[in-house]
């Protein structure tokens, strides 16, 4: 990657590091991420559009969601993203053991996220709130379901990253692959942040 600028970025307290500006990971992963962001933006707009046409109905259905579980899952996502970002930094310093622990910790957060989602979905279905109940629950299951597919794929990527950093010292392309995988995982976190606000919080007060 062509360096276009140089600046000081204090990554670690008291240990400033010289960085050349470069894209984290491969350019291709950013193209994929851009496409995913635009697709989800369309979903977010559709949700708000349908909500605007039936605010009372959406608010009533939304009240059946457990905001505490939404909060818990958001904290799990944020924590997983923090661990992945830290793992990438350790990997860049050839600290494979610490990097692997961070990535596996993130997978643990992802597994906990999935368990919370399963409990939540199970409870909703038991209460009779299914995808066909109304427009709110259609969006709820669709958006959270598509996001869950991202979580499953991302967890597989994180496991592969943990195996890579444990196995050997990283070559340049392996470091880029680690960064690409991490960037994908942060996308999963980023999308959930907006979903949490839209599905659980907005309109309830």
């Amino acid at each position: 990657m062509t360096a276009v600028d140089v600046r000081t970025a204090p990554d670690t307290a008291g240990q400033p590091e010289r960085h050349r500006r470069k894209i984290p990971g491969e350019v291709g992963i950013w193209m994929f991420i851009g496409g995913d962001m635009i697709s989800f933006s369309f979903l977010f707009f559709l949700f708000l559009h349908y909500r605007a046409n039936d605010t009372a109905g959406f608010t009533a259905s939304q009240a059946h969601l457990d905001q505490n579980l939404g909060l818990l899952n958001t904290l799990l996502m944020l924590t997983s993203s923090w661990l992945v970002a830290s793992g990438v930094r350790f990997a860049a310093r050839q600290r494979g053991d610490l990097a692997a622990r961070c990535f596996l910790g993130a997978v643990g957060c992802a597994a906990a996220f999935a368990v919370v989602k399963a409990v939540e979905w199970g409870g909703k279905v038991a209460d009779g709130h299914t995808m066909s109940s109304d427009e709110f629950f259609m969006f709820y299951y669709c958006c959270a379901g598509i996001h869950m597919i991202h979580v499953v794929i991302g967890s597989g990527v994180l496991l592969s990253m943990a195996a890579t950093v444990r196995r050997s010292k990283l070559a340049g392309n392996e470091q880029r692959n680690i960064e690409s995988g991490a960037t994908f995982w942060h996308l999963v976190d980023l999308l959930w942040i907006v979903l949490f606000a839209l599905l659980y919080l907005v309109g309830q007060s």
């Binding site: 600028d5 992945v84 970002a85 942060h186 980023l190």
Partner: peptide
Amino acid sequence: SLVKVRFVLSDFMEVRTAPL
């Protein structure tokens, strides 16, 4: 939520140190 997303982009996804 948008401010949170920006911090995820800038710090976790390292856009802060990426090309402008």
